[in-house]
């Protein structure tokens, strides 16, 4: 047996609180990152991803406290992204207990940041997040600022450059599919996964358990990330693993 494909619930955190309506009947405070993370750990999540969407820069410290609190009680890998602009941000998140830090917009403005961060803390700690939209030439374009600003960059070429700069992993989100619950953009996932040697996390569009399995079997993803399918109690991580195993995907029990 080899490496298990990972299932990663993703939580949006605003000013220290989990948002976008996590709905669990069996936890006291669905806004508490520690409680929600603990719940996903119990369900068998292989990793947890926090995306800090705090708008005001004055509240940046809150995500550090969130990571410290979660890492003190939940002992599975934590990936944290959102608002990372310099190597010092990466270090602070790692020292707080994050295992990997996601860099998105800042990498587009300054690709060298990825190289410096990777050099400082090791490639295995650096995840480059890519938000991609289909263009009219049959490819995909990189967008920044949560999918609002086009960059003119080709997503596959960008992923290859980020690997060269020292990214240890790519978190690939289809902006076309995000929120649609119509499944991953499998052609995008396959295109990037085949183009790079580093692991790729598929994201954006999961609406069913088979979508998760498709991300691996057809998209070639090394890990699959989802939010609402788990948050709203539609499915547990355990159910996702059962379906993936039934589809021949190696998972961790």
């Amino acid at each position: 047996m080899g490496l298990a494909r990972r299932i990663i619930p993703c939580l949006d955190v605003d000013d220290g609180r989990v948002v976008k309506g996590v709905q669990f009947v069996d936890i006291r405070d669905a806004g508490d990152p520690v409680e929600v993370a603990r719940r996903y750990d119990r369900e068998g999540a292989d990793e947890i991803c926090f995306l800090d969407i705090t708008a005001s820069s004055g509240e940046r410290e809150t995500i550090i406290h969130v990571v410290e609190a979660v890492a003190s009680e939940v002992f599975i890998p934590l990936t944290v992204g959102g608002g990372v602009r310099q190597v010092a941000d990466v270090r602070r998140l790692l020292n707080a207990g994050a295992d990997k830090v996601g860099i998105n917009t800042a990498a587009v403005f300054e690709p060298e940041l990825v190289a410096r961060a990777s050099d400082a803390v090791g490639a295995q700690c650096i995840v480059v997040a890519i938000d991609a939209k289909r263009d009219d030439r049959g490819g995909w374009e990189v967008f920044t600022h949560g999918g609002r600003k086009p960059t003119g960059l080709d997503a596959i070429e960008w992923a290859k450059l980020m690997q060269k700069m020292g990214a240890g992993e790519i978190l690939l989100t289809s902006m076309d599919r995000d929120g649609t619950r119509s499944g991953f953009d499998l052609a995008l996932t396959r295109g990037v996964s085949d183009a790079v040697q580093i692991p790729v996390i598929a994201s954006g569009g999961v609406g069913s358990l088979d979508d998760l399995a498709d991300g691996v079997t057809e998209g070639g993803a090394d890990a699959v990330l989802a939010a609402s399918i788990f948050h709203f109690g539609q499915h547990t991580v355990g159910e996702a693993k059962q379906r993936m195993a039934a589809r021949g995907v190696e998972i961790r029990w």
Binding site: M1, G2, L3, A4, D46, A123, E169, D222
Partner: peptide, 21 residues
């Protein structure tokens, strides 16, 4: 080594990242 292949000849990603037996 690069490329790293499993016993079926499938390419494996590096870093080795995730849960192994």
């Amino acid at each position: 080594e690069s490329p790293l292949l499993d016993s079926h000849g499938t390419r494996l990603k590096v870093p080795h990242m995730g849960w192994s037996e």
